[in-house]
Design a protein around this nucleic acid. Structure first.
Lengths: 364, 364
DNA sequence: CTGTTAGCGCGTTCAG
DNA sequence: CTGAACGCGCTAACAG
């Protein structure tokens, strides 16, 4: 009794095809695998047999002998986040164009999850991984080094990791932030709120403390904060710790913090929001306070979307090349997979400040 | 000379661990694989050896012998689309909770891509797949039947496929649409535009033609259109083919069509938008026409988001349980993977009409 | 050009 | 309780 293990139905193997065609396994394998040479005659017979049996190669078995899986892994914070969804789409498109499939894992900014995700990918023998890592310090990158040690190339996307000498595809967050804040300053603002800062419980008293807190968190956030400070410095505007948000990065928290900044004796007249949720949260706070933009407060945010353009007035936003970010990362990775030397350099893509109508001079 | 095939670095096999521990492969396999019984003594030695060598099981090899990959496949139109991104996140979360990983493929609504995607998943020997299929007619579902025949369970998400007797996790699109349009009618509207219809070149002259066109397209779109017609019928409002959009489903096209409806002698006073892009496109058209909502035209759209809530005025929207849609689909699928009988039934999740301020009576 | 044979790394009988 | 041996499906040397 032929062991009907699992569902053998329709599961033809290469040997069965060979038998059906009356040739050796290798001949069948060669024509079906598309390598080596086979006489047209036998080739035809094999193809017909395969067709008849509904043969489909077992990618697992193939990977076992070749050592390559034609699959790359992707680790991001949250596939449900529009920014990452766009990046992942870029990665998928670019890798599929090169014949690679993608397996995506979300970490929710949890380092433990990131480590677990990396292990899953290593175990599944992916040919490489692109990761938007939450790691920053030298001791947080063990899992990345582990992958590298095991011969799995890694490319960073969205976030560079200073302690890791790897290829990274990012935008110049610091510069983008500086440009946005400069735009606010040029409009006459001096009390500019920075929304979506480091998630520390206590507001840092000094600039040094703030920077220290930032350097313990997401790379992008730190860079954007530096850009904010750069612009302030250039304009000789004193840094005020009360104007930066701290706490959990959720919309509700943003709303609270912006409300606080709005209630200050010397209240903010402009807002720089470094995330989509920071923008919507800020908008909620404005409405609750009965204020409107750009009349009462000017506004610039990160991550443009169709919504930002249809707001009334439309929002001035920083647009990131999301798709390209992912596509480029995949390309760099796949070049390495195909034998290229890792470039170990930072690929910086251009972001763009899209000026619309949410910036005006401060109220008199 | 030990064949340094690829990067053998750090790639310890179970045999090497066994050798290091001085036991047979099987013993090492048993302790490392977590099955069978092993004496505490040997167990300890094996574990130490594994630790020392940095052993990690090869999931591919394991899948080869067990026949299961602990991976499910996901096929959606576009992972970059916020709706699908949310659904996929639900799928990933739920399946990871059960120890399954996910490989996601986008089809961009191209049936060929969907077929190719299914083949990739079959070849990779996933344990099951959840698909938001663009298929509708009986002859479009060959690839799904193929998967089934090969023993790969399939669950539908977001879109049911009438000709397929499978488990499906959806919302009641028809009812949701009807409720929204009823709301508009209750406010006094009779000229209600339907935005995001079937992508036919010519506007269907009759209701029958329209329905026929719809039945050749996305299931969700057809259902929403039926809900729209239901509401019209109940209120004895005659159907006017000029009030439904046709053409490519892109924001620019929406803007054109809405502009057209706005320019009609007996122009629309309300808009029902069945997609996010339909909403933003409609908003653009309104602005261009110098009209505002809800004063000049009332508006209800599908797929709520944080943006819709911060618009001024905030938008009345239909909220879909995106995460739950995905999570439920994954759960149903994994139950089947674990041996449960396919229920072959439609699981309908509740959507919700979130009333905000984009609906008002028509202008006098 | 073709068929035979030996792995890839792991799970799993089957003796010992 | 342990270890040797076989098989999963395929690729890749190696002969013929």
């Amino acid at each position: 009794m032929p062991a009907d293990r699992g569902q053998t139905a329709g599961r033809a193997t290469i040997s069965e095809v060979a038998a059906e065609a009356g040739v050796g396994r290798a001949t069948a394998a060669r024509t079906l695998g598309g390598y080596g040479h086979v006489s047209p005659e036998l080739r035809k017979r094999v193809l017909e047999a395969a067709e008849k049996l509904g043969y489909r190669a077992n990618a697992l078995a193939r990977s076992m002998s070749t050592g390559v899986s034609h699959t790359i892994g992707v680790i991001v914070a949250d596939i449900g986040n529009p920014f990452f969804a766009g990046v992942v789409r870029g990665i998928c498109d670019a890798s599929r164009a090169r014949g690679f499939d993608t397996i995506v894992l979300s970490t929710y900014e949890e380092l433990d999850e990131e480590i677990a995700a990396m292990n899953v990918l290593i175990d599944k023998r992916v040919d490489g991984v692109v990761v938007a890592s939450a790691a920053l310090s030298g001791r947080d990158v063990g899992h990345v080094k582990e992958a590298l040690k095991r011969g799995v190339p890694v490319v960073l996307v969205d976030r560079a990791v200073p302690s890791l000498d790897l290829d990274a595809v990012v935008i110049d967050n610091r510069d983008a932030a500086r440009e946005a804040v400069e735009r606010l300053i040029a409009a006459g603002h001096r009390r500019i709120g920075f929304v979506w800062g480091p998630p520390v419980p206590e507001p840092p008293a000094t600039r040094r403390e703030l920077l220290a807190a930032a350097s313990r968190n997401l790379w992008t956030d730190g860079e954007r904060l530096r850009g904010y400070l750069d612009a302030l410095d250039d304009a000789r505007i004193p840094f005020d710790p009360e104007l930066v948000m701290v706490g959990r990065k959720v919309e509700e928290r943003v709303t609270e913090e912006v409300a606080r900044m709005l209630a200050l004796p010397d209240r903010i007249t402009a807002l720089f929001c470094t995330e989509t949720e920071a923008v919507t949260g800020a908008l909620r706070a404005l409405r609750a306070a009965g204020l409107s933009y750009p009349r009462d407060v000017a506004l610039i945010g990160f991550d443009d979307s169709a919504w930002a353009a249809v707001m009334d007035p439309p929002l001035t936003m920083i647009e990131q090349p999301v798709h390209e970010l992912g596509a480029k990362a995949a390309e760099v990775l796949l070049d390495i997979v195909r034998g290229a030397e890792p470039g170990r350099r930072i690929h910086t893509l251009r972001s763009r400040l899209i000026e619309r109508s949410s910036v005006a001079p401060p109220p008199a």
